[in-house]
């Protein structure tokens, strides 16, 4: 599998897939997509990058340990629900606000952060498994 063509194309493909996964994540509330599926796409991107260019390269480019990313995601999802405590509504109640950036009005909500948390957990956990499996292959 370690062909020159694959090795040369894989980084671009990975970048494209990660961008696409973020796109899928963000549009999830209204169109097919969301954190789970976005996370799976990104995880397969990293798995592919690992196969082509080696695990060390993926770990370097991820910077954080995949499990830390998953842990951060879980924390983010849990905290996004906890925000409701300041508004005296039950845990995980969706809260919405509008933020104006220039002329664009952006809907921000706790479900969005929750979904980002889901994304991070899936990316982190799956790529952690995939990378660990690929790593042992080497030794």
């Amino acid at each position: 599998m370690n062909t020159v063509i694959f090795r040369a194309v894989a980084p671009y493909l990975t970048a494209l897939m990660v961008v696409f996964s973020v796109f899928i994540l963000l549009r999830g509330h209204n169109e097919p997509g969301g954190g789970f599926i976005g996370g799976l796409i990104a995880a397969s991107a990293f798995a592919m990058y690992g196969i082509s260019n080696g695990v060390a390269a993926v770990r370097r480019s991820l910077y954080f340990h995949p499990i830390s990313i998953a842990g951060f995601g879980l924390l983010l999802a849990g905290l996004s629900g906890a925000l409701s405590v300041f508004f005296h509504v039950p845990y995980l109640t969706g809260l919405w606000t509008k933020v104006a950036i220039g002329s664009v009005e952006l809907d921000l909500s706790t479900p969005l952060f929750f979904d980002i948390g889901v994304y991070c957990v899936v990316v982190g956990a799956i790529s952690a498994i995939a990378l660990a499996l690929e790593e042992r292959q080497a030794d």
């Binding site: 969301g34 879980l74 889901v118």
Partner: peptide
């Protein structure tokens, strides 16, 4: 829930607590 994608709205909003449990399981499995 201000979302047109029912599946996603169920995952992140209506059944958010279930999802929280599920992603915890994913993390622990990892």
């Amino acid at each position: 829930a201000h979302g047109r994608n029912i599946v996603n709205v169920i995952i992140v909003d209506f059944r958010g607590f279930d999802t929280l449990g599920e992603i915890a399981v994913v993390m622990i499995t990892g």
